[in-house]
Simulated assay, not measured.
Amino acid sequence: MRIALPFLPKPPVVPVIRLQGAIAPGGRGLNDQGLAPVIERAFARGKPAAVALVINSPGGSPAQSSLIASRIRRLSDEKNVPVHAFVEDVAASGGYWLATAADRIWVDESSILGSIGVISAGFGFAELMERHGIERRVHTAGRSKSFADPFRPQSEEDVARIRALLAPLHETFIAQVKARRGTRLAEGEDLFNADIWLGRRAVELGLADGVAHLAPKMKELYGEKVRLMPLGQKKGLLRRFGLAAGEAALATFEERALWARYGL
């Protein structure tokens, strides 16, 4: 029989949230809706010594990146619990946005960080359709309803509108990094042109705080007896039984394209 002695101090606990994959709305990838219960649970477990984020993400949706990071920060401030981010292969674009939710960012020597920028990408099929004698018929109520139609030639007006959307998103991303990293950012360096850097260089530039791995760093900070408690998302019923194969295949294709930008 095991007897619990209330006067014995309990070992410090650090919930560990894995943020793996592309960031996207809905039921695929990382998103605020799916992660909310996990994040809330991490901060609700008594009084954790800290919360650790293990990040491996090539980015994705700016809105979801912001929502997830904001939720982490709100709970960290409310509970007065520090957050540590540990980057594995990649924390780029929205993945780095997630990392900035932490008070300290730790990397591997080979981790890739940065890509502080915004991208809009697509395909155009206008010439292909013309070559095959296919006519595109579009009727709209509202001048902008067919904006950026991939089956029509790209217009200067469309390009201007896209750039007008991307610029404020980029400024929001930059503001997030500056607010969270503050004076740790290296002066005189252009950190916001979507470049990427390896771990050690990212530390030198102030985008991260040091080279360290999860278990040894948590033991160093919170003692040898610290307990790491992994938390993860629950799969929905349809996904568990493989009934969303079509959607999963599309999501996998899109995610592979994001990872490929970093040679992974």
Rank of each mutant, 00 (worst) to 15 (best):
R180W: 04
G114I: 15
E157D: 14
D209L: 07
V87A: 07
R73K: 12
M218D: 03
L30R: 04
D158S: 13
R143S: 11
K219T: 06
E127F: 01
R74V: 13
A249H: 07
Y96D: 12
F123D: 02
I134S: 01
A186E: 05
R180K: 14
P6T: 15
V107H: 03
G114W: 04
G114K: 13
L207S: 13
I23Y: 04
V118D: 07
E171W: 01
P12I: 07
H139P: 00
E204G: 10
L185F: 07
L264W: 03
L258S: 10
S144G: 07
V107S: 08
A215Q: 05
L238I: 01
A194K: 11
L113V: 13
E224T: 08
I112G: 08
S146F: 01
Y262G: 11
N31G: 15
A91W: 00
I72P: 05
R180V: 03
V203T: 09
R137S: 00
D209H: 11
P153A: 09
A175I: 11
G210F: 03
A4N: 09
K225T: 12
G242C: 13
H213P: 00
V118A: 12
G27R: 08
I72E: 08
M1I: 11
K235R: 09
Y262H: 14
A36H: 07
V81C: 12
L53I: 07
I39T: 06
I72Q: 08
E40Q: 12
W259E: 09
D149H: 01
L166C: 09
A52H: 02
R28K: 12
R240V: 03
I196F: 05
R227A: 10
A164N: 04
E109S: 13
D77S: 14
G223W: 00
R45P: 00
A164G: 14
G94E: 08
G210V: 05
V14E: 01
G59S: 12
A42Y: 01
Y222A: 07
I119L: 04
G188N: 10
I3T: 09
Q154T: 09
S120D: 09
R180Q: 15
V87K: 04
Q176M: 14
R136T: 13
W97K: 10
G95T: 12
V203Y: 02
R73V: 09
D89R: 15
R163A: 10
P11F: 02
A24H: 12
Q33R: 15
W97S: 15
I174M: 09
S115L: 09
G117R: 05
